[in-house]
Simulated scan of single mutants.
Amino acid sequence: MSKKAIIIGASGLIGSELLSVLLHSSAYTEVIALGRKPLNIQNQKLKEIITDFSNLSEIKGQIKADVIFCCIGTTRAKTPDLNSYRKIDHDIPIEIAKIAVENQVQQYHLVSALGANAQSSNFYSKIKGQTEDDLKVLNIPAIHIYQPSLLSGNRKEKRMAEKIALVLMKVIDPLLIGSLKKYRSIKTSVIALAMYQQSLKEDQGIFTYPSDIIKEIV
């Protein structure tokens, strides 16, 4: 059975990996990328909807698919204003999820983060946790939440702190065993492949995958 997907955040680290997987998959015949800028990718399966996400109610008729993948996110360095940060990491994913309910979308896949907790004193973890909690109460048949640890991938922008952290993690990762395995760094390609594979299943319910479980899926 052919599937139609919508992906939000297709230009990002995980989103770009996932988009490539979807476009090369025989299981998906149409992929809609919702984003602020054109991707400059030529593929007969790909359709782009350019939006600044302030007019989602006006384009909700186009947000129809079997599966929605939400890979959108930001950082404090790129978005220092906390209200803008919350809009990107919480408001947009939840508004799209509410439209998904109206349009009877069967699956919603969200990239969150390890340690997401609505009660956390850490702003990043708190926003991720609130987004997860607000998503879980919506009437979507299948909700899949991915909680990766430190991401390993080819970023367009340079982040010196992350580069240093990834070098350190090459040494530390093997030492993280048992319940600590979920803190090992993870490749973005692995996350993308796990999201794709889970989307092919017809399971219903709410599923949460910490970093170590994501690796087991693949």
Rank of each mutant, 00 (worst) to 15 (best):
I88S: 09
T131D: 02
S152G: 13
D66E: 13
L19M: 09
R76P: 00
V21S: 04
H109N: 03
L19T: 06
L193K: 11
I7M: 08
I88M: 12
C70F: 08
S121E: 13
D91S: 14
A194D: 01
K156E: 15
T79G: 10
D91E: 15
V137A: 09
T75L: 05
L13W: 03
G205C: 04
M169S: 10
K136H: 01
V101P: 08
L151T: 04
P93M: 08
F207W: 10
I49K: 08
L13Y: 10
N40A: 13
Y85F: 15
I7D: 03
K181L: 06
T208C: 12
I7W: 03
Y85N: 13
P80Q: 11
A161S: 15
D134A: 13
R76T: 08
E30N: 11
V101N: 08
K87A: 15
L135P: 01
M1H: 15
E216C: 08
Y124N: 04
K64A: 02
R36L: 04
Y124R: 03
A113F: 01
I14Q: 02
D134K: 12
L138R: 00
L180H: 10
L19G: 00
I72R: 00
K45V: 00
A97P: 13
E157M: 04
I186H: 05
L56K: 14
L193V: 08
V101A: 06
R184V: 04
L39G: 07
I59G: 04
I41Q: 05
Y183N: 10
A113Y: 02
K163H: 12
I6G: 05
P141E: 07
T131L: 01
S16C: 07
S185H: 07
N43R: 07
N117T: 00
G178M: 04
H109M: 06
Y85I: 12
P93Q: 10
A165K: 06
A97T: 10
S199F: 05
E216V: 09
A97Q: 11
Q147H: 10
C70V: 01
S112V: 02
K45I: 00
I59C: 09
I7T: 05
I99W: 06
Q106F: 09
Y108E: 00
R159L: 11
G61M: 03
I213W: 00
T74A: 11
Y209L: 09
L18S: 02
M169C: 12
Y183V: 09
Q107P: 04
S121F: 14
T79I: 12
L175Q: 06
V21G: 04
A97S: 14
L82K: 15
Q197T: 05
D52Y: 07
G73A: 06
R155E: 06
A97G: 14
I214S: 03
D89L: 01
A100W: 04
R86I: 11
S120A: 09
S57R: 14
K158D: 12
F123R: 09
N55Q: 14
K78Y: 14
M1E: 15
A10S: 05
P210Y: 01
K4T: 14
Q130G: 06
S185G: 07
A118T: 06
G12F: 03
Q106G: 05
